[in-house]
Simulated assay, not measured.
Amino acid sequence: MFDDLPSDLPRLEVLRTWHAMWVKRIDTKIARLREREAQQARAAATVEEHAPDWLIEYGLNRDAVPNAVHVGGCRMAGKRSKPTDSETVRRAIAGGVPACGFCRPDSELGILDG
Rank of each mutant, 00 (worst) to 15 (best):
M1Q: 06
M1Y: 09
M1D: 12
F2K: 10
F2V: 13
F2T: 11
D4K: 04
D4H: 09
P6Y: 05
S7V: 10
D8Q: 08
D8C: 05
L9Q: 08
L9F: 07
P10N: 05
R11E: 14
E13I: 06
E13R: 11
V14L: 14
V14W: 14
R16M: 15
T17Q: 14
T17K: 12
T17N: 10
W18I: 14
W18G: 14
W18P: 11
H19I: 08
H19N: 12
M21A: 14
M21S: 15
M21W: 12
V23C: 10
V23S: 10
K24R: 07
K24N: 08
R25F: 13
R25P: 11
I26K: 07
D27Q: 08
T28N: 08
T28Y: 09
K29T: 10
K29R: 15
I30F: 06
A31R: 02
A31K: 11
R32H: 09
L33E: 12
L33Y: 06
E37P: 06
E37S: 11
A38S: 03
Q39T: 09
Q39W: 03
Q39M: 05
Q40I: 07
R42V: 07
R42H: 03
R42C: 05
A43K: 02
A43L: 01
A45R: 03
A45F: 02
T46S: 07
T46W: 04
E48C: 06
E48N: 10
E49I: 05
E49N: 08
E49T: 08
E49L: 10
A51R: 02
D53Y: 01
W54P: 03
W54E: 04
L55C: 00
L55Y: 00
E57D: 02
G59C: 02
G59I: 01
G59R: 01
N61G: 07
N61Y: 11
R62S: 05
D63P: 00
A64P: 00
P66N: 03
P66Q: 01
N67D: 09
V69I: 02
H70T: 02
G72M: 00
G73M: 00
G73L: 00
G73P: 04
C74E: 00
C74R: 00
R75Y: 05
M76W: 08
M76S: 09
M76T: 08
A77Y: 02
K79A: 15
K79V: 13
R80T: 06
R80F: 10
R80I: 08
P83A: 04
S86L: 13
S86F: 11
S86C: 15
E87N: 08
E87I: 10
V89Y: 04
R90P: 11
R91W: 13
R91T: 11
A92F: 03
A92C: 07
A94F: 07
G96W: 07
P98V: 09
A99F: 07
G101Y: 09
G101P: 12
C103A: 12
C103R: 07
R104W: 13
P105Q: 09
D106E: 14
E108S: 14
L109T: 12
L109R: 10
G110Q: 14
G110A: 13
L112R: 15
G114K: 15
